[in-house]
Design a protein around this nucleic acid. Sequence first.
DNA 1: CAATAATTAAATCACTCTTATTTATTATTG
DNA 2: CAATAATAAATAAGAGTGATTTAATTATTG
Lengths: 408, 408
Amino acid sequence: MEAGSSRHGSPDAAESQQLRGTNQSGMRDHNERLVLSLVRQSGALAKSDIARMTGLSAQTVSVIMRELEVEGLLLRQEPIRGKIGQPSIPMALNPEGAFFIGLKIGRRSAELVLIDFLGKTRAMLQNSYGYPTPRDTIDFVRSGIAQMRASLTREQDQRIAGLGVAMPFELWSWVDTAGAPREVMDEWRNRDIRADLQTLFSFPVYVQNDATSACGAELVFGDIGALRDFVYFYIGAFAGGGVVLNGRLYSGPTGNAGALGSMPVPGPGGRPTQLIDVASIAVLEKALNAKGIEASYLWTSPEEWRDLGPELDGWIATASDALAYAIVASASVIDFESAVIDGWMPPAIRTRLVQAVQAAIGKIDVEGLRIPSVREGTVGIHARALGGASLPLSERFLIGSTAPSRGV
Amino acid sequence: MEAGSSRHGSPDAAESQQLRGTNQSGMRDHNERLVLSLVRQSGALAKSDIARMTGLSAQTVSVIMRELEVEGLLLRQEPIRGKIGQPSIPMALNPEGAFFIGLKIGRRSAELVLIDFLGKTRAMLQNSYGYPTPRDTIDFVRSGIAQMRASLTREQDQRIAGLGVAMPFELWSWVDTAGAPREVMDEWRNRDIRADLQTLFSFPVYVQNDATSACGAELVFGDIGALRDFVYFYIGAFAGGGVVLNGRLYSGPTGNAGALGSMPVPGPGGRPTQLIDVASIAVLEKALNAKGIEASYLWTSPEEWRDLGPELDGWIATASDALAYAIVASASVIDFESAVIDGWMPPAIRTRLVQAVQAAIGKIDVEGLRIPSVREGTVGIHARALGGASLPLSERFLIGSTAPSRGV
DNA sequence: CAATAATTAAATCACTCTTATTTATTATTG
DNA sequence: CAATAATAAATAAGAGTGATTTAATTATTG
């Protein structure tokens, strides 16, 4: 259990140990994923475009894409005329090609989301609580998914490709601080939530760290352009992160890569603190509470916070210093092109935070490094649940890049 | 040029942009590399072992390994008897299968090394200087390699698979601090050393960051067991590092991953400094010089330093605190299994340093992280040059793991 | 109508897989 | 102790899969 439970457990117990050989079906699978990844990234592409981009022969691409079309994953668009030669027929992702369900288990609420092949949200459900329990969570998932599936046609329902669960690393270690009884804590520790959920459904169930999931949502659904290597911060009740290398979400050997909340940074007094202790919404809430301000709306209305006054300014100042520091430290481990910051906050405040971080980086000694550009996330508050849903999508339809290329 | 020159330039200008398709030769190439990687990692293996490990059919493995044997890359060992069934015939790497040349360009000296397929050093040459110049470096390489090749048979010579150059990132930015004239600095900045060297040889020439190279040597030649993800520190005149992910050296989008010398850490007074400013041999030298102690033997006799007294103790104390901090910060970016420390120092001192780092980590708040084990490097002072030589070896004969696996 | 580019059918080629066979060895039986 | 059974490694032959090559077809521009 231990390390295993927080990995994204591949339900088929597939990748047994380490290094596998490649055979023809592996090759075809790889090329199919490649085509789908390119079409997802670039919009609609003609077969000839794909052939040029991949280096595969036109005929191979023709065969692969025709098959994907027959399977309902690609849709033929209007031919493009006006250029010399036979008009090209762009092929786009079919929104109805597949559906995915994401579940986020958070400190104060759970979210369930149903998305289509393009990542568009088709349905969303929420469940608030004082603290989560396995039993209630499973009930919520069972009834919630039943409700969502009822709204789908039989055809659509059969195209549900999986459920991805985004939850914090070692959930039980903080559930008790939320006032939960000890039994609940132990239940989370001892139960294999993935296995329990898997018994309910015929499609595969995956589990992944919540901030890593948010990062995955940014990668798959976000507007990141050609960005292929970035470090990602999600500032929620707690702070966490994720890592994208070579266009692929990297979750690490134990699934705990991007544990940026635990990054040591210089605290207010100059002594080292963890990032999470200065750059999380929980810290902001505490600061507000200390002033006697009721701040539960931080959790309930993330689209628009009231005017928060000096506490917010102070929070942004310290949080951005800490984030700047964490970004520089990250950049000395991996030469990321960008650092992306998103979180449970209104876009306007996210913008302020990012600007403050950019300014704060300027005050740090960065000799010997190329500092990543700092940008806002483009997915927003629901990134974790969407990232959960992106997990079955990635597993089934996308590809990384560190793959064997063509021979000579 | 810019970013390009410090990448490991693939001489064939092969991997044009990003995502390539896979074809049969790619598949075969992948499986061949897989076999060689496994044999390198595990010593000698029978065909049936390989078949079990890779999931490939016995027949496929038979064909591949027979071919590798014919090519002279594998050697048939004595059959192993004493077990039921036909005795298995282990196949080992043929030491004469290929040769590789490594060049390290350092602050005070250059090293040239010739190794065989097992990584054993066949020849080594050194060249000391006040500061390096491109012209002298190229002369040294030309004559040095000519001398080395003269000692090889025609057969061996034809099996030289490449030259790998290990040199610091933006060499020119510190050459001037070594007292070099400005022209030399500019020459390094403006010249493409890889291209210049490539004109001299028919085998491919690669360039890579020096500390990253050292890390690669540890990965390929070191005694790391099953370790597949680690962060590596090389403490030389300066401090640098490297990153191994999934059993593969990761050099990052710009080739500057593992720039750990630039990691911000709490300095002596508690204010942030870069790791390089507290944990490098140059700092130790400076401390000794300040006490009026002549310390040039630090560079010339790294096998055995004289008794260094309190300055060494002080250096180990501050360096280990900083390293401990850098390791924790790295672990919050990637959940490394281990941190490996090596450098230009006698093994006994390396041992002390590692022990001090282990102790120092205990004093840091690591909640939410699994802390990597800290171990000594097993390659030693020549890791950079050997790592240079490992570069053509990896490019040509080894494989990472993030590759398409077998189909159903 | 010539040139150009996209697409695809047919034939070919490379590589892995499955099945069956051979070979070498240990374990068991009479 | 010889004969036989069991086991495992290695390989040969043939089948199957998927990419490539070659050539033909189609739609469009100029």
